[in-house]
Amino acid sequence: MLMIKTVLHFDSVSFRYPKQEKGPLIYDSMKFTVREGEFVSILGPSGAGKSTLFRLITGLEQPTGGKILLNGEYFSNRLGHVGYMPQQDLLMPWRTIWENAALPLQIKGSKQADMRISVEELLKEFGLGGHEDRYPAELSGGMRQRVSFLRTILTGSQVLLLDEPFSALDAITRLSMQEWLLKQWEKRKKTILFITHDVNEALFLSERIFVLTDPPVSRMEDIPVPLDRPRTLKALDIPEIMVLKDRLIDQLRTKATT
C-alpha cells in the first residue's frame, strides 16, 4: 500500500500575538495537512494573516494553543527545520553571491572549501554560473530571487515556505520565474507552501489552494486545482479553470471590501 507522508500538520492551532494578550485571535483551532511533495498556495487579501502562518511554521512564533507537527513529529523549537524564502530577497549586500547562497551551510558549520564546491555547482544549474564572486547589487531582480531560492534549498529542509517571492518583479520576469520554479520543484521533490495574492499565479503553480478568510480563521477553504502537469499558461484559459478563477477573485474581493 502506498502511503503518502504528511510533512506538515496543524492540529487545532490557535494564535494571537503574545504582546496583545487580550487581542483578537488570528487563528482559532485551525486544522490542515500538507503531504510530501505537494505544491500548495495560500491565497488571501493583504492583512489576512498569511505571513503570520509562515512565522508559526518556521517557529518564529509559538501557537497560543494546539500543536504544529513536522514530518509527523512535534518539535517545541522548529527553528532550523523548514526553509523560508522571504518576500524581499534579503541578500546581504556585503557578501558575494556564492557567500550569500552558502549562508545556511555556514550556520550549520560546513567548511569553507566544501561549501564553495557544492554552491558553485548549484549556481551553474540555476543559470548563475560566472556570477559567484559578484555582489547582489550587480544582479537583476530575477537573478537575486534565484539566489535567494537557492539559499532556501541549501537549508536542506524538505518543506519550503515561499512568501510572495515574485511580487516585486516585473510581469515578464515573473512569468519566467514561475515556470522556472515549477521545474525546480519537480526536479528536487520538495514540498512547497507558496503565499500569494495573485489568483493566476496560484492556479498556475499549485495542486491545492488554501483560501484565508478574515481572522479569526478556524478553517481555510481547500480548493484542488484540476490541472495536469506539465502545465502551460494556456491551460488557465479552459472553461473549468475560468469559473474557478472568477469564484476565487469574487471571494477575495468581498473580503477586501468588508
Binding site: L60, L79, G80, Y84, L103, I107
Partner: peptide, 14 residues
C-alpha cells in the same frame, strides 16, 4: 542590522 534578515537567520537555526 535589518530585523528581517536576523529573523531569516533564526529560521536557518542560527
Amino acid at each position: 542590522g535589518s530585523n528581517d534578515l536576523k529573523e531569516l537567520l533564526l529560521t536557518m537555526g542560527a
